[in-house]
Amino acid sequence: MALPVLFGANVDPLWAEAGRPLRLVTQAERDGLDLITVQDHPYQSAHYDTWTLMSFLAAATERVTLVPTVANLPLRPPAMLAKAAASFDVLSGGRLRLGLGAGAFWEAIEAMGGPRRGKREAVDALAEAIDVIRAMWSGQRSARAGGAHYRVAGVHPGPTPSSALDIWLGSYGPRMLALTGAKAEGWLPSLAYLGLEALADATARIDDAAHGAGRDPGHIRKVYNLGGLITPTKRGDFHGPAGQWIDQIISLATQRGMNGFVYWPSEDHERQLALFAHEVVPAARSALSP
């Protein structure tokens, strides 16, 4: 059975206006959105710590699922990240999905004490990290996993998270897409980095890797981060009237297999998220419902 299509909003972790993230998340939950995503760039002086902010937002809400997009692996060791995610899952009633990335902005990561990795090394480290995280979630008395970059050796895992706690990867290159299909439950690409013309090839790589690993690609959550604006006149992809947004979302779901959409307004966030929730999402949900 196909996964239901989810709709969400991105909330930037900006601390200059302290109440803004909570105000936007409260609005999104009230308006019936499913997901809240939060960037994780710890080296950004303008940002809260993403994990702390998400914990605060979870405590202040009841229904929305929270997703780091994506957790900065080089600055968050996977065994501790797994422990934090499992704790979040249990405390929030299953309202976390672990978005995870190999890393970017290496000079900034290195300036904060993290490693600098090349592309191949970063993907290798991510693959090991996934194994470590799975081991930490296994509920086994003693867990061993990993390799050259990360490993656990005889650690006692806990708490054991719910089955809702999935790993979603932010991936673009061929090896990362293959890793997504082989080992992850979800995918978090962004329109700004993976345009509509490249989406078919990327989804095919994920689906092929899933088949190769004996997995059903229809069970992989594929969430497209949509940067743009809802405006009276069309100016481009995801920059135009609500009707255009509805048509494009329906096309991506039916023709490209995308089953989640998160709006990243480029400006006027509260009004734009309200337009998305009230004018786009209900019509798209209705058209895509079984």
Rank of each mutant, 00 (worst) to 15 (best):
A277D: 13
I130R: 00
G170P: 01
I133Q: 02
E128S: 10
D216H: 13
G236L: 06
L3D: 06
P74F: 13
E110G: 04
A184E: 05
A143K: 02
L100A: 02
A200H: 14
N259P: 09
R235Y: 01
A86G: 15
G236W: 11
E197T: 08
V25L: 08
A287P: 07
I109G: 00
D201Q: 15
A28E: 06
E121Y: 00
G195I: 01
G154P: 00
D208G: 08
E128P: 09
P21S: 13
G218V: 01
T160Y: 01
E107W: 03
Y224N: 03
W245D: 02
D12F: 14
A210W: 06
M136A: 07
G118F: 05
A125I: 04
T52M: 09
A143G: 12
Y172I: 10
I249W: 00
P77A: 11
A143S: 13
L81K: 00
E62C: 07
F276N: 00
M80Q: 14
D216P: 10
G173W: 02
V11D: 03
M112F: 15
M136I: 10
H239S: 09
A210R: 02
A46V: 06
K119F: 09
I36V: 15
E185Y: 01
D237S: 11
R144S: 12
A202W: 00
L165M: 02
V64Q: 05
R271Y: 12
G228K: 00
P290H: 13
W168P: 03
D34G: 08
T50D: 00
P13V: 09
L98G: 03
L57S: 02
V152G: 00
T26C: 12
D216N: 15
A84S: 15
A122Y: 00
L24P: 01
T180G: 02
P115C: 10
S87L: 10
Y48M: 02
N259V: 05
R116Q: 12
W137T: 11
P217E: 06
I130T: 02
P115Y: 12
F276E: 04
W137Q: 06
Y48H: 15
I230Q: 04
P189Q: 04
V90Y: 01
D201C: 07
G154D: 01
A202K: 03
W51Y: 08
A143W: 00
R151E: 04
P217D: 09
A79E: 06
R76N: 15
R175V: 13
R20K: 13
G214F: 13
L188A: 06
R95S: 08
D31M: 11
Y193Q: 11
A145K: 01
S171R: 05
T233G: 02
E185A: 13
N225H: 15
G118L: 06
Q27D: 14
A202P: 14
R221L: 12
A82E: 12
D208R: 12
A9W: 02
H41S: 10
G212Q: 11
A58N: 10
R97N: 07
L229M: 11
H41P: 00
H269S: 14
A192Y: 07
A153D: 15
P42Q: 11
L91R: 07
A9P: 01
G93W: 01
A143D: 02
A178C: 07
E110L: 05
Q244M: 08
T69H: 12
V25C: 14
D216V: 03
D40C: 05
R221Y: 12
R63M: 09
L35H: 10
Y193C: 05
M80P: 04
Y263G: 01
P161H: 08
A9H: 05
L191G: 07
P174S: 08
T26L: 14
G154N: 04
V11Y: 08
